[in-house]
C-alpha cells in the first residue's frame, strides 16, 4: 500500500514537472502562436544551470556553487528565458517559421554543448548529486515523496496563477488583441514584435523552471534526457490538453505522461528485451501519427471545454497561408 502510494506520488510529481514545462509552452504557442521546436534545449538549460548552481563543488567541472535550491531554480529559469529572448530577437521580425528553424537548431547545439563542454556540463555522464528539496527526509520514503509532491504542486499552482495573472492584465489584453487581429492592433499602436518577444522569453523562463525542478527531483541529469523526443512529448501534452487553455495544459501533461509511462511498461513487459528498442520506436510512430491526427481532426485539443482563448486561436489559425504571406509582405 505504502509502495503504491509512493509510486503514485512519484508518478504525479514527475507529471507535474512536465506540467510546468507545458505551461511555459502554452504561453508561447497557445497564447501567442509561436512555434518552438527546441523545448528540450530550453528545459536542458534550466536543468543544467540550476544543477551547476546548487551542487556541491567538484573537481574538473565548473561549479558547483552549492547555492540554495530556490536560487538554482530562478537561475535555470532566467538562463532559458534569456536564450529564448535572444532567439526571438533574431527571428521574430522575419517569417513565422524561421523561429521554428532557429529553435530546432538551438536545441541541436545545446545538445552538442552538453556532450562536449565537459568542463561545464560533465559531458556524456552529466551531473549527479543534485540536491533534492527536503533531502533530510530521504530516510522516510513516504514522507519524502509526499514532500516532493507538495513542492511540485505549489510550483505548478504558482506558475498557473502567475500566468493567469499576466494574461488577465492589460499586457495580456494586448497579447490577445495581437492574436485576434494583428493589423488592427498595430493600428492601435501595439508593436507585435515586442509583445511576442516578451511572451516567448517569459514562456522560456517557465520552461527552464520546469527543467530545473525536474532535475532536482530526479537527482541526476545527462544529455540523453534532453533529446528531441522530449520536445515532442511536451508538444503532445499541450495539443492533447488544448492549446490556449492553462488548465488544459496541466491536465494534458498528466494524461500524456500517464499514457507514456503505461505504454512504456507495457512494452517492457510484452516484448522480449532484444525487441524493446523496436517496440519503443513503434510507440513513437503511433504518437507521431496521433499528433498529426489531432492536427487534422481536432486542432484545438481533445480535452478542455470552451476556453475563452481558444476561439480566437482557431480563427487566427484558419487564416489561409496565402493571406498570411500577403500580410508578411506588407510588413517588411
Amino acid at each position: 500500500m505504502i509502495d503504491l502510494l509512493s509510486y503514485g506520488a512519484f508518478f504525479l510529481t514527475m507529471a507535474l514537472t512536465y506540467a510546468v514545462i507545458c505551461l511555459g509552452l502554452n504561453l508561447q504557442w497557445g497564447q501567442t502562436g509561436l512555434f518552438n521546436v527546441g523545448v528540450a534545449g530550453f528545459v536542458a538549460v534550466g536543468a543544467y544551470v540550476s544543477s551547476i548552481l546548487t551542487t556541491p563543488a567538484i573537481d574538473g567541472r565548473l561549479g558547483g556553487f552549492d547555492l540554495p535550491i530556490v536560487i538554482g531554480w530562478l537561475g535555470g529559469g532566467l538562463g532559458a528565458g534569456f536564450l529564448c529572448f535572444l532567439l526571438g530577437a533574431l527571428t521574430l521580425r522575419l517569417r513565422s517559421d524561421y523561429l521554428a528553424i532557429a529553435t530546432f537548431g538551438a536545441a541541436v547545439v545545446i545538445q552538442l554543448a552538453l556532450l562536449n563542454l565537459e568542463g561545464i556540463t560533465g559531458g556524456p555522464f552529466g551531473i549527479g548529486f543534485i540536491p533534492r528539496p527536503f533531502g533530510t527526509l530521504a530516510e522516510q520514503p513516504g514522507l519524502f515523496a509526499a514532500a516532493n509532491l507538495a513542492v511540485l504542486i505549489v510550483l505548478v499552482l504558482v506558475c498557473y496563477l502567475a500566468l493567469q495573472h499576466l494574461t488577465r492584465s492589460p499586457w495580456g489584453r494586448v497579447l490577445r488583441a495581437l492574436r485576434e487581429d494583428e493589423e488592427a492592433a498595430k493600428a492601435l499602436g501595439k508593436d507585435p514584435v515586442t509583445y511576442r518577444l516578451q511572451a516567448f522569453a517569459i514562456g522560456g523562463f517557465v520552461m527552464g523552471l520546469g527543467g530545473a525542478a525536474q532535475a532536482h527531483f530526479i537527482g541526476f541529469i545527462a544529455p540523453d534526457n534532453y533529446l528531441p523526443t522530449l520536445t515532442f512529448q511536451v508538444w503532445t501534452m499541450l495539443i492533447v490538453g488544448g492549446s490556449g487553455n492553462m488548465r488544459g495544459a496541466i491536465l494534458g501533461a498528466i494524461l500524456v505522461w500517464a499514457i507514456w509511462a503505461l505504454s512504456g511498461s507495457l512494452v517492457a513487459s510484452v516484448f522480449p528485451p532484444d525487441q524493446q528498442a523496436r517496440a519503443a520506436s513503434l510507440q513513437i510512430v503511433l504518437i507521431g501519427v496521433a499528433l498529426c491526427l489531432v492536427l487534422l481532426l481536432r486542432p484545438y485539443g481533445i480535452l478542455g471545454e470552451a476556453g475563452t482563448l481558444r476561439a480566437p486561436l482557431r480563427r487566427a489559425l484558419r487564416r489561409t497561408p496565402n493571406s498570411l504571406s500577403e500580410g508578411q509582405k506588407t510588413n517588411v
Binding site: A162, H165, L166, S169, P170, W171, G172, R173, V174, R176, A177, E180, D181, A184, A185, L188, G189, K190, Q198, I202, T308, L309, A311, P312, R315
Partner: peptide
C-alpha cells in the same frame, strides 16, 4: 477584436499604459 468585449476593445486603444509592460503587468 471579436472575442473581446466592447470595453476591452476600447481599452486596447489606450496609449502609454504602464500595465501593458510585462513587468508592471506582473
Amino acid at each position: 477584436f471579436p472575442e473581446m468585449t466592447v470595453l476591452e476593445n476600447v481599452l486596447c486603444g489606450a496609449q502609454g499604459q504602464s500595465g501593458e509592460k510585462a513587468i508592471s503587468a506582473f
